[in-house]
Design a protein around this nucleic acid. Structure first.
Lengths: 225, 225
DNA sequence: CGCGGCTATGTGACATTGTCACTGTTCGCA
DNA sequence: TGCGAACAGTGACAATGTCACATAGCCGCG
């Protein structure tokens, strides 16, 4: 909790919630607290179920999975304006699973107690709509991810990920190791693919960064699906 | 709808619903209709959103995905006692996606109109609980599936799938092609793996069937994760 | 400055899996 | 009986994963 940054109007700036009934907004604001967490905080994980539902106001949370074999893969990210509802709900129901949520940057979020969340779902049709839409989006995204992991070529997936991580810029600060976790593959595979991209003058590498030289070509490859 | 098979007590036999409040049960029974569908019915799919939520009373529904490349993979099955809530909800929210649900056997289900479903969520805490538990289970299962597809060896996955499909018996009626769709791989890969299993005398093959000879060895391999 | 120690990256050999283009086999049925 | 469709087998090759290393850049510290 960060007193000087309390924002009693956060609901208005939350895309999915601004159209709620006034009474619902009031309840949300009254019964929630705004919390801040530094980068790298483990927000939830094995044996660490949160007791609150979070609504992300700023920052991003990376949700990833570590399998028994030590392999890791990034499942998805929760950005400002989205909620952890589903992941939180999952943890409440099945606390023996292996995904964890990590603050990828400093994070500010509204924490809503479980009971309040339940009341909101009961009271507000538009809040129900918001929650079910979030669940639905997540499930359909997971469907697409399964399809990609199972059937997509690595070069296409890497090109796609580079475009995504560049966020419009041309410089990406990351390592081959981190990229391999993003895609659920081995570091060596990333190294080889990046070398091939470099050979084609699509990217330029230096220790810890990848610079995009020919975005158009990368996008063309990424579109192959 | 199948008049002679109407079962006004189905709610009682539904594991997740039998503990609902009496008023909720009554509402469910009054406002739903029991429908029957023959095997191979496409219950939902691209461009075919159902207007009702289904609660499966008997039979199973296979949910699979067809990607643009023509590859297929089975995502999960819905068995008697479970509901299509999530998949249906997904379709309502994002009707441009590619998963489809197919009756794997003759299916009997209770159809609940969307509006009634919404009312139930609003009214009944235990129905909410049921719905969120279903969503949560599905999402955690999808997490596990992503992990398996990304990191598990094919022989382990096939052994696992054979055990699962055998349902305790030793005879499985399926083709290499169907097994490849179950695991999201190519038919040739299944053929090779089954030949290896056969060489080790773990299974016996004939056209359209696989017979398990050494379940213990298959289970031992399947446990490798 | 130079020297470890750490992290990041490169490399080659090999195993596994996916793809392609076939062939052969079995089954149902006209 | 012959034909077509579905099912299964095969070999060559490409793509990806695994392993055991080697090499290179970075940083703090004496």
């Amino acid at each position: 909790m960060n007193p000087e940054e309390i924002d009693t109007e956060w609901v208005e700036r939350f895309p999915g919630l601004s159209r709620l009934e006034p009474a619902t907004k009031k309840l949300l604001l009254q019964r929630s607290t705004v919390v801040s967490m530094p980068e790298s905080t483990v927000i939830f994980g094995p044996g660490k179920s949160p007791e609150n539902m979070l609504f992300l106001l700023s920052g991003t949370v990376r949700v990833q999975q570590v399998s028994e074999t030590g392999h890791e893969i990034v499942l998805y990210r929760i950005n400002a304006g989205e909620s952890c509802v589903l992941t939180t709900a999952c943890l409440l129901a099945y606390d023996d699973y292996s995904a964890e949520g990590i603050a990828e940057s400093a994070v500010k979020a509204a924490a809503v107690p479980r009971q309040v969340f339940d009341d909101l779902v009961a009271q507000s049709p538009s809040f129900r709509n918001f929650v079910f839409a979030a669940f639905s989006k997540r499930i359909t995204d997971l469907f697409l991810m399964i399809d990609e992991v199972a059937f997509q070529r690595m070069d296409v997936r890497l090109a796609h990920k580079l475009i995504e991580l560049s966020k419009g810029g041309d410089q990406i600060s990351t390592t081959h190791q981190k990229l391999s976790v993003e895609l659920g593959t081995a570091r060596e595979v990333i190294s080889r693919q990046l070398q091939e991209f470099q050979r084609r003058a699509w990217v330029e590498q230096s220790r810890g960064t990848v610079r995009i030289l020919d975005r158009a070509q990368l996008e063309k490859l990424a579109a192959r699906d």
